[in-house]
Simulated assay, not measured.
Amino acid sequence: MTLRIVLVDDHPVVRAGVRALLESTDDLVVVGEASNAADAVRAVEAERPDVVLMDLSLGDGEGGIVATGRIRALPDSPAVLVLTTYDSESDILRALDAGAAGYLLKDAPPDQLFAGIQAVFRGEPALAPSVAAVLMRRAASPEPRMTEREVEVLELLADGLGNRELAKALFVSEATVKSHLSHIYGKLGVDTRAGAVAAAIEQRIIRR
């Protein structure tokens, strides 16, 4: 059986390379391409593929996680396999929560990519070794886990936002921001904003 694939990536050269790689086999054919979330949904509705290969960073500001959620909400939706350069805990968890069936990195060898596509089509998970390690470490850690809001605060901290800017971005009071920071510092074992960002990056909670 030949599996029908839709590629979603905002770099045309990357799409061309992945298409050439996939179509070098007899089992896979690319039936559509998209560079943003809206076009990805349209391509899936038009082509009814078996699997969608999804990058997380797209050119429309919405990203692959939004696109994954929209595609998975469609009737008889295809499996979505993330293929990206990002392996932070927040990216992985958000993608899986949005409905992705697998998560591979762009440096994966071709055989791993081919096997991943076949696996998610069969309803099985497909995870890069480093991604599986992140998930296992998270599951095994005795430390309190970051909430989604705390991860969001960390990402904004990494962008250099102060308390007032954080409050505005999160639509909360500065007192609430200080409460979030206190909880974050406690969970990471740090006492400064810079220390929190460094620890979060080192632990792959947020992107570098």
Rank of each mutant, 00 (worst) to 15 (best):
R4M: 01
R4Y: 00
I5Y: 01
I5A: 09
I5R: 06
I5V: 15
P12G: 00
P12W: 02
A16Q: 12
G17P: 05
G17W: 02
V18F: 03
A20Q: 14
L21E: 05
L22Y: 03
L22F: 05
L28N: 10
V31M: 07
V31R: 04
G32K: 05
G32Y: 02
S35L: 00
S35K: 11
N36S: 11
A37G: 14
D39T: 05
V41S: 10
A43C: 09
A46V: 07
E47H: 11
P49F: 05
P49G: 03
P49N: 05
P49K: 10
D50T: 12
V51C: 12
V51L: 09
V52D: 08
M54L: 09
D55W: 09
D55I: 11
S57W: 05
G61D: 09
E62V: 01
G63A: 08
G63F: 11
G64I: 01
G64N: 01
G64W: 00
I65C: 07
T68R: 00
T68Q: 02
G69Q: 10
R72M: 14
L74C: 10
L74N: 06
P75E: 09
D76K: 11
S77K: 02
P78E: 02
A79Y: 02
T84I: 07
T84F: 08
T85K: 04
D91T: 04
L93W: 09
R94N: 14
L96D: 01
D97L: 06
D97R: 15
G99C: 09
L104R: 06
L105F: 03
P110A: 14
L113V: 13
L113C: 06
F114S: 09
F114N: 08
G116L: 09
I117L: 12
R122V: 03
E124F: 04
A126Q: 08
A126R: 07
L127T: 03
P129I: 02
P129K: 07
P129F: 04
S130C: 08
V134L: 12
M136I: 13
R137Q: 14
R137Y: 00
E143T: 13
P144I: 04
R145M: 04
M146N: 03
E150D: 07
E152Y: 03
V153M: 04
V153G: 03
V153F: 05
L154A: 09
L154N: 10
A158S: 15
A158I: 03
G160A: 09
N163V: 15
E165V: 01
E165Y: 08
A167K: 10
A167G: 15
A167D: 07
K168H: 10
A169W: 00
A169P: 00
L170Y: 04
F171H: 15
V177D: 01
K178V: 12
S179R: 15
S179G: 15
S182K: 13
H183E: 14
H183M: 10
I184E: 07
Y185C: 03
Y185K: 14
K187V: 11
K187S: 10
V190L: 10
D191M: 06
D191F: 09
T192Q: 09
T192C: 07
R193P: 00
A194F: 02
G195V: 05
A200Y: 05
I201V: 15
E202K: 14
Q203M: 14
Q203E: 13
R204K: 15
R204I: 02
R204L: 12
I205V: 13
I205M: 14
I206H: 06
R207H: 12
R207V: 12
